[in-house]
Amino acid sequence: MNPDLIYFFQTLLNGLAVGSMYSMIAVGYSMVYCLLNRVNFAHGDLYVFGTFISFSMMQIFPIPAAILFACLLAGLIGMTIERTVYRPVRDAFRLVPMISALGAALVLRTIAQIVWGTEALAFPSLLPGGYLEIAGLKLFYKNFVIIGISLFIVIGLTCFMRYTKLGRATQCIVESLSTASLMGIPINRIIPLIYALGGFFGVVGGVAYSSYYGVVSMDMGIWGTIKAWAAVILGGVGTTYGAFIGGLILGLAETFASGYLSSAYKEAVGYIVIIAILMLKPTGLLGKKRIEKV
């Protein structure tokens, strides 16, 4: 096969894997974001915190148990953050909950830095190594595992939102918090649950990311929040698979930018793609236009 073509497909495959990791972080974020339409700055630091915990747990417990424990703990922390930081200011001025979440993020970051230090740590590679070579194209197994996990998560969450009672109730809250509350939907039980789910799947994404690159560091936190937020906005607020597609596009844009331009500009190119798409379609790719109720 033509080497240029091989390079293209190789980049595509890498891009899909990177995009899948963004998607994993983004789908969890998407639910939390849609729920109240407030930027949740704590999401990134929460999932990295969870990844750190799984890292420490792995030294003692078997790996699956360690990851599960970290996911559950992150879910619990997510719920706690909702209860202590979000709920009291839910009806406040738009910026207030965002800033309180930022405060929570900074606190989490500091705790992590005190416990695990400020340096990045080497994360064990949990994904299968090796690759299959077809016509000069190296198909890394880890890429497929990552893509598989993220597809599984997004399909699972989409089904959850569509077909379960809890998922439908969540959609009602997304539509209108006050109406949902008036209709007897127990919002104060469902919202923490969604925060917990967001934290849970965030850690899945975080562990996948850290084992893919073999590193975990607290800097991934705010970075993750921004990537997830960007992916959600790009895909369109309000759908789980919108976040998934947004994450994929972001990953592809960055990987192609570093493959063909320069890795120094990859983030910049990612953002330029987002801005360009948003300028063409202000509601995001799959976002529905909301009719403003006056």
Binding site: V85, V96, L102, G103, A104, L106, V107
Partner: peptide, 20 residues
Amino acid sequence: AVYRVGVGGVIMLLLMLFRP
């Protein structure tokens, strides 16, 4: 220095909860 960010965070939290 490690606590600097955390102090900022705690202040943000307390501020938003008690004096937004």
